[in-house]
Nucleic acid binder design. Structure first.
Lengths: 141, 141
DNA sequence: GAGTTCTCTTGACTAGTTCAAGAAAACGCG
DNA sequence: CGCGTTTTCTTGAACTAGTCAAGAGAACTC
């Protein structure tokens, strides 16, 4: 019996066709939070050797559009993906090694969503990136 | 008499050599907030025809390192530069057309810098990107 | 004004991502 | 179950933003 999430069901509920590459990508993103595209490709190929990089790019886009994964891309970094969606969490990024960790914002629900001056923009999301040093990198400085 | 900022002085105070390309880039960034690199190159060449793109890349990096300009790069966008530095302001980005506007965060000074769980990271900056629709794009939807 | 050092020009190159055409697979329906 | 439609995957090329490297040229120091 499978113990992890039911990826097939997740795809069906999102009205996406169930294919091997999609199942593989979805599993990889769940098991390797914040992985970049290349890592996803490598990990997918460990279980399913002949997947083209293009397929992974397409799948990641489809999953992102469907809301099954979230794409994050801190300045200066390549695109990364995570499976934790639907909540309002943010990220700390290490300036030196690029390591990423999740954080929940301290300032209540939907943090900072109240911009003081919105210039007529209709705002639907506030994304926060905390910059600093990870434990290892701050140690060795 | 010049009415704008004294770019030459700014460069000298930052211990940077004063060159025509640097003066030109600094002026462009001041006059076109949130311009991307290509726009900066175009604008610079309007006043100084034979500047290489490499020079502009180098100058932008030098100015950024010196703290005279700030580099911003919302997910999915190319690098953009602005001259408003030293304060704690953030940005609203239009999901459709990519337009950017400045905002001051409503939640007091150094907003959101108090992450609830920092995982041992030493945090020195919190960057907030508000996502939504600009007035024009929200109109036409 | 000479020497040193930094900056700019030139031109090649890379990484990450996207585009396009056709083959193959998934799903809906009889 | 098997057929047709539609979507997705494969293959391979192309593109963009940005970087690297070597040498010529300009800025600053004394």
């Amino acid at each position: 019996m499978p113990s992890g999430p039911d990826y097939e069901l997740m795809l069906r509920e999102a009205d996406l066709r169930v294919t091997r590459p999609r199942l593989a990508v979805l599993e990889v993103v769940h098991e390797h939070p914040h992985a970049d595209t290349e890592s996803v490709i490598d990990a997918v190929r460990r279980g399913l050797a002949d997947v083209s990089h293009q397929a992974v790019y397409d799948v990641l886009r489809a999953l992102t559009t469907a809301g099954l994964v979230r794409r994050i891309q801190p300045a200066g970094s390549v695109a990364r993906y995570e499976a934790r969606v639907g909540d309002n969490h943010h990220h700390v990024v290490c300036r030196v090694c690029g390591a990423i960790a999740d954080v929940d914002c301290a300032v209540g629900h939907r943090p900072c969503l109240t911009a003081s001056e919105h210039h007529g923009f209709v705002i639907d999301e506030a994304e926060v990136v905390y910059w600093g040093l990870c434990p290892e990198c701050s140690e060795s400085s």
